[in-house]
Design a protein around this nucleic acid. Structure first.
Lengths: 255, 255
DNA sequence: CGTTGATATCGTACATCGTACGCACAAGCT
DNA sequence: AGCTTGTGCGTACGATGTACGATATCAACG
């Protein structure tokens, strides 16, 4: 009776199971993950099917199931691959906590931007080896704050959450610099119709009086342009860190 | 030749197309969306299939396609339904900008917590009527800041992004108060194995020296507990707003 | 070197999904 | 009444994830 290594009663989490290797396998988890990432990057996340990945590797579809228990595990590998790109190379982490955490944040955002699909299936994410390394690196970054453990963890999480939220919003990507409408077709018309109802006085006066546009379409375009300005990432991060730093002088509750 | 209203060349965006209504239809978009939301809440987002939603309504599967062009549009309806819950009821918006934006942020987070699946398919989100109302309401909240349009938009977006990021992180939900492991099975073992390698000095000293736990499992548990403390939402929001407020006195570039 | 048994590959089959197609029915019109 | 067409839905098809089990291949041992 054959017993494929990925189907038995071994640990549930893929990182805890050995990958095939005793008898020279044709592939590796890393190769498979890389192929899947390549497909997601070029053809979108929905194009990543077990058949498509297998084809990319010149293998039979079911072969993948010897390296991975199911598709969710493949997605886990893909996500951890991206987390690998989030890591700051050895020695490149600045010494001051603000600069260090900023470097990490920038790198994270860049990785998510390169692989926008990462945020697609973000809910069923699980922390992998590279996620742990990212955690270690974040701890290293905030070491010299002198804050107690709870607050250092809060600081790290807060920045992670900001980067996550910003990147997520970025993937929706209202019109970039191309001039072409990047947002879903019809959005402009929807705004036009809704604004004509007069039920949105603030939006109306914003685009008419402040942005000096004389029609709703141009005004909406301008608003989206402003929101999707890339500089907003740095500015938001700076404001967030300012707020954190301001509270660092004295303990949070007392004094 | 029959021409179903949702399959013709009419506007691409669902909100711009009339829903069936001339000849007393058996359902409505709102009903369908509500049914889908109910299913997602109770059985998870993956359980929302066209067949399942139709069954919930006692209708034939293909009937839904008279109200909606495809499943993505149904998801749009679902998301806009949630955005409806994000809206602050008339008259309940506080007058000061900080309190107002905080109220909106809290409500958003609460809605996302009630419907965690919202963040699942967040990438292909499109703004709907309730999204526009949320925008109007956010503008109203920051009206009295006296900031120029660009900065008010930046402020609104920044807070939205924080709430998004925080909620997203919350859905992953490392162990809550239940004591039961909420995070994916095996995570603890992974940490144990990785930490034993000694490659993570900061994590190691954090859980050993600062959190006073004498084994990796307890330390990891404690870390996740700290990160998922619900008070962190308010604290992070406060810090973010502090940072914003600090920069409000003087213009951003000059001075 | 031949035998053996685990390891690795993958073809077939099936349940489930989204949805194209087109017929049946009946509501509203003249 | 008869016609038009909005509405409901049964059937069918292609795609997907993956269970099952047959096959091929290699390491180890005699």
């Amino acid at each position: 009776m054959s017993s494929p290594p990925q189907t038995d009663k071994s640990p549930a989490l893929i990182w805890l199971r050995e990958e095939p290797g005793t008898r020279r396998p044709s592939h590796s988890r890393a190769q498979i993950a890389a192929a899947a990432v390549r497909i997601a990057d070029t053809e979108g996340f929905d194009a990543v099917s077990m058949r498509r990945v297998a084809q990319e590797l010149g293998a039979g579809t079911m072969t993948l199931y010897h390296y991975v228990r199911n598709k969710d595990e493949l997605v886990l590998l893909m996500n951890d691959t991206v987390m690998g790109e989030v890591l700051v190379p050895d020695g490149e982490l600045p010494s001051g906590w603000r600069e260090a955490i900023t470097t990490i944040a920038r790198r994270s955002r860049a990785a998510f931007e390169r692989h926008r699909w990462t945020l697609d299936r973000v809910t069923d994410i699980s922390i992998g080896p590279n996620g742990i390394k990212h955690f270690e690196q974040s701890l290293e970054a905030v070491q010299d704050t002198g804050l107690p453990a709870e607050q250092r963890l809060g600081l790290i999480s807060l920045v992670d959450e900001y980067v996550f939220g910003y990147s997520l919003r970025e993937t929706i990507d209202f019109g970039g610099e191309t001039g072409d409408e990047q947002w879903p077709p019809g959005t402009l018309e929807l705004f036009e119709r809704e604004l004509e109802s007069g039920a949105y006085p603030r939006i109306g006066s914003l685009i008419a009086d402040e942005l000096h546009t004389d029609n709703v379409a141009d005004g909406t375009r301008r608003v989206m342009q402003i929101i999707s300005q890339p500089e907003r990432f740095e500015e938001g991060l700076r404001q967030l860190l300012d707020g954190i730093e301001a509270g660092m002088g004295s303990p949070p509750k007392s004094g």
